[in-house]
Amino acid sequence: MMRIYAMLLLGLLLPVQADDSPQLRFQPLQGQLQFNQTKQLQGLPVALKSSGYIQLEAEQLLWHTTTPVDSKLQVSPAGVSQWQQQQYVAVAGSEFVGQLMLAVLQQQHQFISSHFVLSNDDSGCQLLQPLQAPLSKLFVQIRLCGGSTLQQIVLLETNGNSTTIDLQHEASLD
């Protein structure tokens, strides 16, 4: 009888132990989101601010900057394509960035856990530290903040540049 209790207890404990590492806690995003982006670039005294909207679909997203310039990017696991002269032109070497953007917005646990170490900071944000190149060559850290839904993404690049993206859901705007 004691053995059965012990096994039951062990069975209860096991999932707790397996769940010890931080999990992505935001709800996957879908549909249209408004964004405000602030870029701090090394050697540039002024911050670059822009805004627009993100249209999220299952396998890809549209990143449409409307202010101060009109610019469209299509992001998919295959990479980033830029709207140029009435067509999307693939941006070479952007595959990792494309995968990363989709994985963060859609909270793809598998991609995130295989490429980043997850931790929580004091302010309740989640920190993603790249495990290996080429992401580790591009980013020092990625910070994800918000309540139940993701509200802010901060990309800290290895070259000292940083990009802060504030997200607003269409529903919360109403």
Partner: peptide, 20 residues
């Protein structure tokens, strides 16, 4: 110049010291 602005506002990372 227009192409440079578009690239600057993209969320994708830039090369180090690109602007300087």
């Amino acid at each position: 110049v227009d192409a440079a602005w578009q690239r600057l506002y993209s969320p994708a990372p830039l090369l180090s010291n690109a602007l300087s």
